[in-house]
Design a binder for these strands. Sequence first.
DNA 1: AATGAATGAGTCTTCATTCAT
DNA 2: GATGAATGAAGACTCATTCAT
Lengths: 209, 209, 209, 209
Amino acid sequence: MVRISAAAKDAVRQRLLEAAAAQFAHQGFDATNIDDIAVAAGVAKGTIYNYFESKEDLFGGVLAEGALRTVHRYSSLPHGTSTRSALRALAAADVTVLQEEEAFMKVLVAEAMTPRSRNYSLILERLAPFLDAVAGILEAGVRRGEVRRDRPVPQLALLFTGTLALLYIQHWQSDGGWPTMDEIPDLAVDTFLDGGRARGPQPRRRTRR
Amino acid sequence: MVRISAAAKDAVRQRLLEAAAAQFAHQGFDATNIDDIAVAAGVAKGTIYNYFESKEDLFGGVLAEGALRTVHRYSSLPHGTSTRSALRALAAADVTVLQEEEAFMKVLVAEAMTPRSRNYSLILERLAPFLDAVAGILEAGVRRGEVRRDRPVPQLALLFTGTLALLYIQHWQSDGGWPTMDEIPDLAVDTFLDGGRARGPQPRRRTRR
Amino acid sequence: MVRISAAAKDAVRQRLLEAAAAQFAHQGFDATNIDDIAVAAGVAKGTIYNYFESKEDLFGGVLAEGALRTVHRYSSLPHGTSTRSALRALAAADVTVLQEEEAFMKVLVAEAMTPRSRNYSLILERLAPFLDAVAGILEAGVRRGEVRRDRPVPQLALLFTGTLALLYIQHWQSDGGWPTMDEIPDLAVDTFLDGGRARGPQPRRRTRR
Amino acid sequence: MVRISAAAKDAVRQRLLEAAAAQFAHQGFDATNIDDIAVAAGVAKGTIYNYFESKEDLFGGVLAEGALRTVHRYSSLPHGTSTRSALRALAAADVTVLQEEEAFMKVLVAEAMTPRSRNYSLILERLAPFLDAVAGILEAGVRRGEVRRDRPVPQLALLFTGTLALLYIQHWQSDGGWPTMDEIPDLAVDTFLDGGRARGPQPRRRTRR
DNA sequence: AATGAATGAGTCTTCATTCAT
DNA sequence: GATGAATGAAGACTCATTCAT
């Protein structure tokens, strides 16, 4: 009996989080109102307050849930044979999650990109597993001589993650134009690893600082 | 006939834009209220509506003004002798503007990085001069063989600009930690041009796609 | 499920309509403010918006309710044996309603007599039962040869109704002077049916058109 | 010099009254705003306050001007040979004025028909010349035996005037449908004098009270 | 636990009026 | 006298939160 009601409670909570994520992703925090979430989740407005202390708390719950859902994926990633293939696998996993949990991910990305987020520490905390995965790959790359060693790995990890986010935002802003979700993993890895410089016989290597 | 000089009117308008930019930068659009802006600008609430149709219009005005102030700087940039130095000069100019007009720039960057901005087209339009400047530099780079030709220049320009924005946000989020404003230009150019790969004798060229 | 009974909700709605009618009747639409209505109805301001979409909607509700309350009376009217007595009975019923629902009726009449009412179609629609009742009486009168047949019955019905309204307004404007409410039914019928011409032996029948 | 400026002042005053009348007629007192009137009159907003103490005062000015313009016409009316023709001439004159000064007249009629007008005494005062003209005609009619003597002439005058107003309102509300302005004089006189009863051999004269 | 009506502080916006020029 | 920018009180409406049922 307790089990059932606990499961039922959890189901309501999940429905609330999904509904809230959809609204927050679509309209942002302020433009979203509790009524709409309640209707979308199929519960009464007051019920929300049995599960979350406030609208802000609900938003935090969405962030946390989003991070949680993402993290689950990264634990079981095949280690690539090269930095490039490992990063590509990770990015591809991220894109998959993004497509499956678009609402949660949009909220996460938006919050991460807000210059004055009260939730930044939460974001960082929840982002940590992903950053750690990236850092692990890069660390191995450094050891193999595939990744530059003149910049701290954590910073590089942050930059790679940021590049991914950048491409997501560009995808959303361009309304599905360039880049498409499918090309994002390659694009991110290519951009991050190779940069914009021409390769092969370099005309003037001296100008490099 | 207007008894207050056009200059005086313009001064009020500027005060309003500055005050609004500060508030919007600090708290975001929704959390900012018209009263605070009026007080900060030293005018009565109603006066704002002599200059802007609505809070949204005022926000648009802030965006436009921010873009305008940035653009002024780009017209008088020394053309660098290399892609690297030209980009660095441009980024440095951008950072300078950013520091001088922090409020306006924060609003611009935040809006540009919001995944569902109603103002995205405005942003793009106003960002165009900057993107064009970047594209011009990259174009020249391509001709000189310094920039890869396998990806469209406009996309590369967008990526460079995005990388800059990414670093700004990281700077703000980390509360002035890494990266500092001063190192951003080099960091952006280095990241964008060289990527994360190790240079010099490449161990395994075969893995490159 | 609604914990407050539907009856209780309806009671609040009625209180709101009564309070609103009183205010609108007393001060007109624009001079009435939502706060006053809320206070008069003994609810919080926000509660009004649980029942009506806007101040205009509330006004429309008052009109509709006023019309509704009037109409109820007309269904159970004894058919007079003559046009005169039937009209008098109808007018008397109208006066009775008017006295019992003075606020609602004042709002209705005022709106009906405003030369540029946005609610005229609503008024007409709601007034239809009354106009129909009048028209029915006049139609019977025409058949009995008591009512002139050279003018369309609907126009005559409108004129009779208008004459009634005219007398109400005159009553209100004169602050209860002439005419008193009691004499209005006879006055209206007499004015409408007999007109101002002298009766009996007509001195000059030739001047009649 | 004084003459010229006085004339000029008067011209501005007239322009203001015309503009205000147009606005008040079109939108009513509350929905009209000072700005629109100023623009329509081609003066600055502040200038209005050199001519009128307040918006209310301006409204009063419009009423007064409207009444004034109407009254001028009634002084030079040809006395008809019969009550009917005299009333018809008066009504025709009124319709003419109404058409020429539609804005002013609409404001006057609307105000007269408002059940709680603060300006009712002004209306009555300004309406007096018209009512007196009607009363004069009816008085003569009574003496000639053309008008019933069982009801006070002032009340009859008020009823005739009210009937006219009723038809105007009906004309405006029906958006120029029935009745047309042209048929109003006959309609008013016919309605007022003859009433709705059938003429000629009356079937049951006994039912008359 | 669930419900949804009630609440009222908070917000944007309007606009008649003032007054320095 | 004319101007129109500035003013700020007032008002409609929103919505997160509470709480009786």
